[in-house]
Amino acid sequence: MQVLVYDGSFAGWLTAVFEVYEYRFTNASIVPEGHRQDSLFTPTHTVYTSDAKAGRVWRGLQQYLSGRAMKQLSDTFLSELPGREDQMLEYARYALARKQPVEKDFSHRAVKYIADTAQKVHREKHRMEAFVRFQKTKDDLYFATVEPDFNVLPLIAKHFSDRYADQRWLIYDKKRKYGICYDLDKVSFVELDWNPTDTRAEREAILNEEEFPYQQLWKDYFTSTNIKARKNTKLHIRHMPVRYWKYLIEKQPG
């Protein structure tokens, strides 16, 4: 088993795929830096990310894969799931060997993995489009904090900039310590280690005076639109898993 260590970026993974071919590794595994090695004696090969090599692999895959399949591949990468690098490698090798679209070969192990993982990422993207709750600050910035299962902020930027074209907003991923920010013109990525305020006093200091009443109205609405005679907690939780409640206004007590 030949282990290739890359820097954890998508371009890094593409470079690694290039080098698998370049060095003719047959039994290869791609792991990110800092990944714990199972054995001290496994030979490792360090990959230095190269835009040229990455570009060649991307264009090579584009010859055989549809735009949709290419997106499935990059979305799978955003899942951050351990081991996805190897499944993606197997997928790439399969596509390059068959020299034809393979994305619908659902009974192939790697194809199935990519299709399923891309679907999971897509679901999380959709959840974030639903569960982001903006709070308006005194200087008219709408901000929201999220902790998505997967790294989906790059995927939701367009949805929010298309929709909220006339308000400044910031969506902060607390888990990954970065955010996307819209300034009425374009979306940019901002790195920040920020602990959004939690106590009532702190929130009052930064939030717009209309913010609390509107949050309360939303809670009122959420409660009174429920039909008690049809209570179905299982369904409620299946659609709104408990891990998301932390940032949902309507699930806060009071």
């Binding site: 639903a130 929709r163 907690t233 299982k234 369904l235 409620h236 659609h239 709104m240 949902l248």
Partner: peptide
């Protein structure tokens, strides 16, 4: 540059009856 669009349909929350 107005407010909003309508496209795919998003469920922003689910009530306790699962709707």
């Amino acid at each position: 540059k107005g407010l909003g669009n309508a496209s795919n349909g998003i469920c922003h929350a689910y009530t306790e009856d699962g709707r």
